[in-house]
């Protein structure tokens, strides 16, 4: 599978990649995006099978990216990995068509809980 990881923090992108590996998802192609705009563009150009996106990012937030993708007809599976873990944000994410929301701080077990069956 090709997985797109969008986060404006390079360190956090590395932590997400490391956690994917620790959770057992270590045989997948990773594409990185540094904000929502970059993620939107890379969904078009790289055609990933899954997007794991931060919420708060400059230029375009993760939510704006998801809304833009759905408006453009993209049905790419999309999940948030974000420090916004409140019930309110989980509701907003689900309403916008996100498959799941993994709240930071996370562990490899949290990743397995949300990604088993999503990453194959």
């Amino acid at each position: 599978m090709k997985i797109l990881i969008a986060d404006d923090s390079r360190v956090m992108r590395q932590i997400v990649i490391r956690t994917l590996r620790q959770a057992g998802y270590d045989d997948h192609e990773i594409v990185e995006a540094e904000d929502g705009r970059d993620a939107y563009d890379k969904v078009q150009s790289e055609k990933p099978d899954l997007v794991l996106s931060d919420w708060n990012m400059p230029n375009m937030t993760g939510m704006e990216c998801l809304e833009a993708l759905r408006s453009s007809g993209s049905t790419v599976p999309f999940g948030f990995v974000t420090s916004e873990g409140s019930e309110e944000m989980r509701g907003k994410a689900a309403d916008a068509g996100a498959m799941f929301l993994i709240a930071k701080p996370f562990t490899s077990e949290t990743f397995q809980d949300h990604l088993d069956g999503v990453i194959v």
């Binding site: 404006d8 923090s9 390079r10 360190v11 956090m12 708060n56 990012m57 400059p58 974000t82 420090s83 916004e84 873990g85 409140s86 309110e88 709240a103 930071k104 701080p105």
Partner: peptide, 26 residues
């Protein structure tokens, strides 16, 4: 990047523990 991200993660959890709806900055 790294030091800011720790504050972001701690701040996000603090925000989630507060009552009502709030916005979080970068």
């Amino acid at each position: 990047d790294a030091f800011g991200e720790i504050a972001n993660v701690v701040g996000g959890s603090v925000k989630a523990a507060l009552p009502g709806q709030s916005a979080l900055s970068l």
